[in-house]
Design a protein around this nucleic acid. Structure first.
Lengths: 212, 212
DNA sequence: TAGATTGTTAATCGATTAACAATC
DNA sequence: TAGATTGTTAATCGATTAACAATC
């Protein structure tokens, strides 16, 4: 169960997480084994890459004939990626997008839990709600008290850079950034950007090129 | 103003759009020229890649000494990427995420406009609102009547595949997919996936690897 | 002019794919 | 056994970077 390749980059991690999700789906369907091409299709990659990834991750539980046993592979992936304990997250910025995320049904199924929201607008605060909404000033203490590692950043563009600095200072290690700001890549702080407007612009541009 | 390289892939288009946004920001700051390294930093790439992209896109308006004139470069990019006319989009699935997107402030600034929502739950319908919410059954007619090319897909996982097929059948050419489903890549239909839960899982995994 | 910056070519790097021997 | 599928190595492919001549 050792990595053959110490350096495991974002893309591969992303695929491994996809494999895990796909395997869970297969398992819930009652299957016990998969072939590399099934898994590849389900995860949106090629069979060759599935085999390569599994091999590189040191999870070679495959059988040269009968494919991969789903349970063993899932176990290996869980051990590698971390057991799916509740993944607690805070949400910074409780505007429209933020509040929508607060009750996003897709989270519960992945055992992701938003444990608190933070905002600076007084009328948005609600310290006694099931998911409390607190002033940003209380963020560092909360992060430390609860050992929070990951934050969702859903503040307006104008506030993004400053709030990001506060998150970094508070010891946050991973940020899912919904603001259209290119955050400075502080080392050892993982940032994942989701720029919705940009994605739509890209779509239009890709379409335009398709038409030529 | 011709492409030197006919094949222009998603990544490069994405960067070009980023350059455009960055240049607009620079311009609004009153600047008239930029260097490749400024632009690279603003767009989150390297100076070398900025020069390469600009060259490959056939936009060589640079000056071997004084950098790029912002206006000329913007004009070239606009011609290449398409003028920023209003980019009209429909929204399919008007749950929490959907309604949040409906009034997302980041869209207006990019001249993206959601012109209608579609849903199947009767209590969500609202045909007379500023942004009407219509039954999905009316989608094909609407798409055709208004020449809609791009749809945002924000329906629950269980409905995603079926609705996607309807979109394809209706002639939609680009889909921004918020559902966690790997949609089948119908040719000549561009799909951009945003899987929020997956991104958060990735963050946790990356963090875990950082800590080793 | 001297210095700086582009445009472009060549080198590198890494990721994906192809292919095939091993083997269940 | 024969057939099929993995695990792994070698080949390919493409994207990024490095470097530098051209030149403002």
């Amino acid at each position: 169960m050792k990595l053959k390749n110490m350096m495991m980059q974002k893309d591969m991690i992303q695929r491994l997480v996809r494999y895990k999700n796909a395997l869970q789906k297969f398992k819930s369907l009652g299957l016990t084994r998969v072939f590399s091409d099934n898994l590849g299709e389900a995860a949106g990659t090629s069979a060759a890459l599935v085999r390569k990834d599994i091999s590189l991750a040191g999870l070679t539980v495959g059988n040269k004939r009968g494919g991969y046993p789903i349970d063993a592979l899932l176990q290996g992936l869980d051990a590698l990626l971390g057991t799916d304990t509740q993944q607690r997250v805070i949400l910074v910025g409780c505007g429209k997008i933020g509040t929508a995320l607060m009750h996003y049904p897709g989270f519960s199924s992945e055992s992701i839990q938003i444990v608190a929201g933070f905002d600076n607008k007084p009328d948005r605060l609600d310290p006694d709600a099931a998911i409390p909404i607190l002033p940003v000033s209380q963020l560092p203490a909360f992060v430390q008290a609860h050992g929070i590692q990951v934050a969702i950043l859903a503040v307006p563009e104008s506030a993004a850079a400053a709030v990001f600095d506060q998150l970094a200072a508070a010891g946050i290690q991973g940020v899912l950034n919904f603001s259209p700001v290119q955050l400075k890549p502080a080392p050892a702080l993982v940032v994942q950007n989701i720029n919705i407007a940009l994605e739509i612009e890209n779509l239009f541009t890709c379409i335009r090129f398709n038409q030529r």
